[in-house]
Every structure is written in C-alpha cells, then in structure tokens.
C-alpha cells in the first residue's frame, strides 16, 4: 500500500511538471507577454522597456525555470492588474471557491447516489425513468444558461434568493445547485450500473439465501460494492466542479478563484493567469490521485494483500 501511494505521488509530480511546462509555453506562444502587459496604446519603446524590466527578453525555458522554482515556493509574482502579490489574491479568493465546491459535491452525492440506487432497485419503473431524465438533462444543460434560468426563477420572479454576490450563505444556494447538477449525472449513472451489476452478483444471492432483510442486502451488501467506483468518480467530479466554477462564479459574481481567473484573463494579466492555471491543474492532479487512493482504500482486494 505504501509503495503504491509513493508511486502514485511520483506520477502526480511528473504530470504536474508537464502540465505547467505545457501551459506556460501555451500562454507564451499565444501572445508576447510584454505587449499584453503594456496594453494597446503602448509605443514600441515602452514595450521594449517592459520586456527588459520583466525579463521577457530571455529564453523561454529560463523564464519558465525561474517562474517554476518560485512557484513551488508559493511565490507567483505580482499581478500587474491588481497590483498585489498573486499568492495573496489566491489565498484571499480560495475560501469562497472551496465552500462552493464542497457544497456542490455534497449536493451532487446527496442526489446522485439515492437516485441511482432507487433506479437500480426498481428498474424500468417511473423512478428509473425520472433518474434517467435527470441524468440526460443534467448532462446537456449548459451551466451558464442554467445559472441564468435559476436566477430568473428564484431571484427575479420569486425573489427568494439574492441575484448575485457572496455576502451571505444564501448567495451560495443557486451556484451550488448549478455546479452540483453538473456532477449528478456521472455519479448517478455509475451508482445505477454499479448497483445493477452487484445485485446480480453471486454474493448478493448468498445474502438473500442467508435470510437477510432487504435493507441489509441492498445497503450493506450491494451498495458497499457499488459505491467503490462512485467514490473515485466523485473525486474526479470535484476537480471538474472547479473548472465549472469559472463560469458559475462569473455569472453569480461570487468572488472566488474562478472569478479571479476570469478577471485576470479579461485583463490579460499573465502572472495571475499562470498561477490560477497551475492551481487548478494541481487540484485536477491531486483529486485524480485521491480518486485512485480512495479506490484502493475502499476495495479490500487492493488494500489487503
């Protein structure tokens, strides 16, 4: 198990390095950072000054090395647009995004797992069909439009909830529903197919033959097995939620990391952009490693050798 964890961690580090090289290169080849920083009205002398002042005249790989070494120490430079150290901006915005992410994944699990279980226990009934439709719509609905739709219904028409902002816990309700809905379909489908598979397994027949009551058979014996891949996928979905947070936070004006990313992109604020991309990738990598570890932990066949 320990060796497995170490190897998984090693892989994650390699992936992180490659992702940062890739995104760094991508941004640098997309635009000359000096021009981006100087703005549209700058003269060519201004641009040249900025290029030298910020070291953009050096080879790209040296710039990357310097940036990366600083970045792993938590120093992402200063944001030209906000005029603040990027790490301060990020720390400031993180709690909002974390709250939103945690609420959303809880929401998604809270709906996805019960729906999937019911659909599997009562296949081809109305419950199965409802869960199927929820899955199809949840997968197809664009989250920025769903945000606006909920806003129109609950904030504008019914006036139950605030339209936007991050002042109170109520501001999180609609963004949580939007982000959570994105994660429901995969969780629900996996629960359903997992339950259907396990319910036809030999050990479930054994459980019935032992004379166990249905709730023990379904929830102790079947769900425990069906849930293993769901836990892993929930972890991956948590990472995807962060990606969705860019759109949703922008729509609801929630001042989290996603909003920060959007603002920095609109202002071509390269240091902030790079930092946010690195942070998001780190979450993706971290959560997918976590997914593998959870998978191993919940499956005794992997955990106990």
């Amino acid at each position: 198990m320990l060796i497995y964890l170490l190897r998984r961690f090693g892989l994650a580090c390699w992936v992180a390095l490659c992702v940062s090289i890739l995104t760094f290169a991508l941004l640098h080849f997309s635009i000359d950072p000096a021009i981006a920083m100087a703005g549209e009205d700058a003269t060519s002398e201004d641009i040249e000054l900025i290029r030298i002042a910020y070291g953009y005249d050096r080879p790209v790989w040296i710039q990357f090395g310097e940036w990366f070494l600083r970045a792993i120490q938590g120093d992402f430079g200063v944001s030209p647009y906000f005029g603040l150290p990027v790490q301060d901006l990020i720390l400031d915005r993180m709690p909002v995004t974390f709250t939103l992410g945690a609420l959303s994944i809880v929401f998604a699990l809270g709906f996805g797992i019960p729906l999937g279980v019911l659909a599997a226990i009562y296949p081809n009934t109305w419950i199965d069909r409802v869960s199927l439709s929820v899955g199809v719509f949840g997968q197809a609905i664009p989250n920025f439009w769903f945000s606006l739709l909920l806003m129109i219904i609950f904030a504008v028409q019914l006036q139950w909830l605030p339209v936007s902002g991050s002042d109170s816990i109520w501001s999180y309700v609609l963004p949580t529903i939007v982000l959570g809905t994105n994660a429901i379909p995969p969780i629900m489908r996996l629960t359903r197919t997992g339950m259907l598979d396990t319910l036809s397994a030999d050990y479930i027949r054994t459980a019935w033959a032992k004379g166990l009551p249905p709730h023990i058979v379904f929830f102790k014996h079947a769900l425990r097995n069906a849930i293993i891949p769901v836990v892993a996928v929930a972890s991956i979905q948590a990472a995807h939620l962060l990606g969705g947070s860019i759109v949703v936070e922008s729509v609801f004006a929630l001042h989290g990391l996603g909003m920060l990313a959007y603002e920095s992109i609109l202002r071509s604020d390269i240091p902030t952009m790079q930092a946010v991309i690195l942070i998001f990738s780190a979450f993706f990598i971290g959560f997918s490693a976590l997914s593998d570890v959870l998978n191993a932990y919940f499956d005794p066949r992997i955990r106990v050798q």
Partner: peptide
C-alpha cells in the same frame, strides 16, 4: 416470512465459492 426461514431452517450452498462471498467484508 421467507427470509425468516432462509438461513435459519433452510440453508443453501452455491456452486461458485470464488464469487459467492462478499469481497468487501
């Protein structure tokens, strides 16, 4: 009523020992 009898008065042993026990417990 059936589940009260199963396991208590009537027991059953299956063919596949490899898959008839729950791998998670």
């Amino acid at each position: 009523e059936l589940s009260q009898l199963r396991g208590r008065r009537i027991a059953m042993i299956f063919q596949e020992p490899m898959t008839s026990l729950n791998p998670c417990y």
